[in-house]
Simulated scan of single mutants.
Amino acid sequence: MTARIRLVEVTDANCDAVIAVRVHPAQDRFVASVEKSFEHAAEHPEANPWFRAVFAGDEPVGFVMLSWDVTPAPGLLGPYFLWRLLIGAGHQGRGYGTAILDEVVALLRAEGATELVTSCVPGEGTPEPFYRRYGFVPTGEVDEDGETVLRLDLR
């Protein structure tokens, strides 16, 4: 059974609680923090960042950020790129990651998107097996940061 979550806009009222969501320390090298995600979004407006807090009930359990409907260019994958997906350390293993992807995929299909692209750092502990179980497949590309590029067909 997939976990029940809501994608919620980040507001002044929930921002501090969302920033407090952290992955396991061993995962820090694979996924940037929520705070760093906000910095990346501000530094790269050309990536058309779209982000949401992930709530289970009244508690923030994760965060998701995409590049939304961009024209692919050097250093900018798209048109829809899963830029960040993180689940708080105390909330992992409960199906939240899959539930987030289910919500994102439904939103993207409603927009007429035909694919979702992401990338991940190679190495032990990488989230690549999670993405592959969901249906993402390696494209054979490696991005400018040395990350493996994966693609999910939404058709």
Rank of each mutant, 00 (worst) to 15 (best):
M1I: 10
M1W: 06
A3F: 12
A3E: 09
R4T: 15
I5G: 14
L7N: 12
V8Q: 04
V10M: 00
D12V: 13
N14G: 07
N14E: 12
A17M: 01
A17Q: 01
V21F: 08
R22E: 08
R22S: 15
H24A: 07
P25A: 14
A26S: 12
A26D: 03
R29I: 15
F30M: 12
A32K: 14
E35D: 10
H40G: 15
H40A: 13
A41D: 08
A42D: 09
A42T: 07
A42H: 08
P45C: 10
P45S: 08
E46D: 12
R52E: 00
A53E: 02
A53R: 00
F55T: 01
A56G: 13
D58L: 03
E59M: 08
P60R: 01
W68F: 10
W68A: 06
D69K: 07
P74R: 07
G75I: 10
L77R: 01
G78H: 05
P79T: 07
Y80V: 02
Y80R: 11
R84L: 06
L85K: 00
L85H: 05
L86A: 00
I87M: 02
G90Q: 10
G90N: 04
G90C: 07
R94D: 09
G95I: 11
G97P: 00
A99P: 06
D102Y: 13
D102V: 06
E103Y: 07
V105S: 11
V105P: 02
A106F: 08
L107R: 14
L108H: 01
A110M: 14
E111F: 15
A113Y: 02
T114K: 12
T118H: 02
T118G: 01
S119V: 05
S119I: 03
C120N: 10
G123C: 13
E124C: 13
E124K: 15
G125V: 04
G125F: 09
T126F: 06
E128H: 03
E128I: 01
Y131R: 00
Y131D: 01
Y131T: 02
R132E: 14
R133T: 11
Y134Q: 04
G135E: 10
G135K: 11
F136C: 02
F136I: 03
V137G: 15
P138D: 13
G140P: 07
G140L: 11
G140Q: 14
E141T: 04
E141P: 07
D143L: 10
E144C: 15
E144L: 15
D145Y: 15
D145N: 09
G146Q: 12
E147R: 04
T148R: 15
L150E: 05
L150M: 08
L150A: 02
L150F: 09
D153A: 14
D153Y: 09
L154Y: 06
L154C: 13
R155S: 15
